[in-house]
Computed example of a mutant assay.
Amino acid sequence: MSRARAAAPLAMALALAGCASSAAAPPPELLTARAAVVQAQESPLSPLAIAELRQAEEALAVAEREQRERPRSATARDAAYVARRRAQCSLLSSLVRANQSALVRARLTAARRPQTRRNAP
């Protein structure tokens, strides 16, 4: 019986520690949003979409604030979703701008080449 009494406080401490760690862990939506923003920031093409990246960073800050003020609320999840989507838009915008630039360069190169005439059979 004394062993059970001695184990009770330990069991209670472990249970409380488990509850505290799960409450402190951010929701998966926020983790996904953070990862998306970091990916957009680390992209070598990120300078091509600075405004979009800034919007993603600002949206992530809103999501972080919502998570602190209203943990696990629908508002916090929605803000994280917006941040993730803005980060994805930043990545896509930078890719579009890089491809547009490559297309312009290819067209200029093609225009400088001498025209060759093909003989019709």
Score class of each variant (00 low, 15 high):
Ala23Ser: 13
Ala35Pro: 12
Thr116Met: 06
Pro47Thr: 12
Glu58Thr: 08
Arg84Ala: 12
Leu31Glu: 14
Arg84Met: 06
Ala6Cys: 04
Ala6Ile: 03
Ala4Tyr: 03
Val37Cys: 12
Glu58Ile: 07
Ala76Asp: 01
Leu53Ser: 09
Ala24Ser: 08
Arg107Pro: 10
Ala17Gly: 10
Ser21Gly: 06
Ala80Gly: 07
Leu95Asp: 10
Pro47Leu: 10
Ala63Pro: 01
Ala40Trp: 00
Arg107Leu: 09
Ala120Thr: 08
Leu14Lys: 08
Ala80Thr: 07
Glu66His: 09
Ser21Ile: 05
Ala79Phe: 01
Leu95Val: 12
Val62Asn: 12
Pro9Ser: 01
Ala74His: 02
Val96Trp: 04
Arg86Glu: 03
Arg65Asp: 15
Pro121Phe: 03
Leu53Thr: 06
Cys89Lys: 10
Ala49Arg: 05
Arg34Pro: 13
Thr116Ser: 10
Pro71Ile: 00
Arg105Cys: 03
Leu108Asn: 15
Arg113Met: 12
Arg5Gly: 11
Gln100Asp: 11
Ser101Arg: 11
Leu31Val: 14
Ala15Tyr: 07
Ala63Ile: 00
Arg85Val: 14
Glu66Tyr: 02
Pro114Trp: 00
Ala83Cys: 12
Arg86Ala: 07
Ala36His: 02
Thr116Tyr: 04
Thr32Gly: 04
Asn99Asp: 14
Pro71Leu: 00
Ser73Tyr: 03
Ala98Gly: 13
Gln88Thr: 15
Pro71Phe: 00
Ala76His: 04
Leu48Phe: 04
Arg5Val: 08
Ala80Arg: 03
Gln41Lys: 04
Glu66Gly: 10
Tyr81Leu: 14
Arg70Gln: 09
Leu30Arg: 00
Ala13Phe: 05
Glu66Trp: 06
Thr109Leu: 14
Pro28Ile: 12
Ala20Pro: 11
Ala74Thr: 02
Ala49Lys: 06
Glu66Ala: 09
Glu52Arg: 07
Ser90Asn: 05
Arg85Pro: 13
Val82Lys: 14
Ala56Ile: 08
Arg105Ser: 09
Ala7Glu: 12
Val104Ser: 11
Arg77Asn: 07
Ser2His: 06
Arg54Glu: 14
Ala35His: 11
Ala61Val: 04
Ala36Cys: 08
Arg68Trp: 01
Arg54Pro: 08
Ala87Lys: 01
Cys89Trp: 04
Ala111Ile: 03
Ala24Cys: 10
Ala35Asp: 13
Ala56Arg: 05
Glu29Gln: 10
Arg34Gln: 14
Arg65Gly: 13
Leu31Ala: 15
Val38Tyr: 11
Ala83Arg: 01
Glu29Gly: 15
Ala40Phe: 00
Pro27Leu: 01
Cys19Gln: 12
Arg112Gly: 15
Leu108Ser: 15
Arg5Thr: 09
Thr75Ala: 08
Ala56His: 01
Arg68His: 03
Ser46His: 08
Ser101Asp: 10
Pro47Gln: 07
Ser73Phe: 01
Glu42Gln: 14
Gln100Cys: 03
Ala79Cys: 11
Gln55Lys: 09
Cys19Glu: 12
Arg86Gln: 05
Arg70Phe: 07
Ala25Asp: 03
Pro44Gly: 14
Pro27Gln: 02
Pro47Arg: 11
Ala23Gln: 09
Ala25Cys: 04
Arg86His: 04
Ala7Ile: 08
Ala80Met: 06
Ser46Trp: 08
Leu30His: 01
Pro28Ser: 15
Pro121Tyr: 02
Ala13Cys: 07
Ala87Gly: 05
Ala23Trp: 03
Glu42Met: 11
Ser43Gln: 02
Ala49Gln: 05
Arg112Thr: 13
Ser101Gln: 13
Ala17Arg: 00
Tyr81Pro: 06
